[in-house]
């Protein structure tokens, strides 16, 4: 695989994505540099999760090109399983495998995909469990963990594949407020260790403190991007200001005097049931 160190980790050119008649992404140009931590923020329905899922080809773009570490994901002949080995994905709903213990969750792909032996896979798994503070949970099933613990186990599962790039799709949105901190701490440590990260999030404090760059999306386009202190501290666009006001001071939204700017925009329609297992 041609992994060119000087190519950005993620390059996206004029990306469009439609679900039926609904155009969710309307021409995105976007990059994540090697070692960079980019937070993508924006109202729900803005297309930020779809953008993230396109990077890993969980959604097939309608038009445009995507490269990950120099490999073109949008090439119809891309060896998708091989490229995905280098990309870690963390989901809002954790998606741990409920029929496997935590340790087996961390070793199953190492063994089936990377062909590591059991001993080596378990050694790497335990090292990553230690990294996320779950050393004592190796032998329990996911259902016996709290949400925060499940998400940290899911992060450790991705890290066990030793990815060059980590994608996070609203990793703390399904968590009780007091569990959010543990997950964010793990992510911050990861960023400090130099991991390349693209994070779709509603955690403005995390974006401000950890991100190298913040990208604000609305209505399927990138509205503005830059260092966190600029985008979050002194936003140039009205849409960014309105969003931040709603997020940071939700009890005073009405005082903005803006007549109901974005009532929950339409969600992407569910795929037909028969498509569910045919990624």
């Amino acid at each position: 695989m041609t992994t060119t160190a000087n190519r950005p980790a993620v390059e996206i050119r004029d990306l469009h994505k439609s679900f039926g008649p609904l155009e969710v992404l309307k021409g995105i140009d976007f990059e994540v540099g090697q070692g960079e931590v980019v937070c993508v923020i924006g109202p729900s329905g803005s297309g930020k999760s779809t953008l993230l899922r396109c990077v890993d080809l969980l959604e097939q773009p309608t038009a445009g090109k995507i490269w990950v570490n120099g490999v073109e994901m949008t090439d119809p002949d891309v060896e998708i399983d091989a490229v995905r080995r280098g990309i870690g994905m963390v989901f809002q709903s954790f998606n741990l495998f409920p029929h496997l213990t935590v340790l087996d969750n961390l070793t199953v792909a190492q063994r089936k995909v990377l062909r590591r032996g059991r001993a080596e896979a378990e050694r790497i798994a335990r090292a990553n469990l230690e990294r996320v503070g779950l050393t004592d949970k190796a032998d329990v099933f996911p259902a016996q963990l709290s949400g925060g613990q499940q998400q940290r186990a899911a992060i450790a599962r991705s890290l066990s594949m030793e990815p060059k790039l980590m994608l996070f799709d609203e990793p703390t949105s399904a968590l009780d407020p007091e569990l959010v901190g543990d997950v964010l701490t793990v992510m911050r440590k990861l960023a400090e260790d130099g991991m390349t990260m693209m994070v779709v999030t509603h955690e403005m404090a995390f974006a401000r403190d950890v991100a190298d760059r913040v990208v604000f999306m609305d209505g399927g386009v990138v509205v503005e991007q830059g260092p966190p202190q600029e985008v979050l501290g002194a936003p140039k666009h009205e849409r960014t200001r309105a969003f931040l006001a709603r997020v940071l001071d939700p009890t005073h939204v009405a005082q903005l005097g803006q007549p109901d700017q974005s009532p929950e925009p339409p969600q992407a329609p569910n795929l037909p049931a028969d498509d569910r297992h045919q990624l």
Partner: peptide
């Protein structure tokens, strides 16, 4: 098979498993 949440297949595929291995 259809009752297994879609996220299970997605998580398996993002770990680099083929469709067959994930199934």
């Amino acid at each position: 098979i259809q009752a297994v949440p879609k996220g299970q297949m997605e998580a398996a595929r993002t770990l680099g498993m083929s469709h067959f291995t994930a199934m």
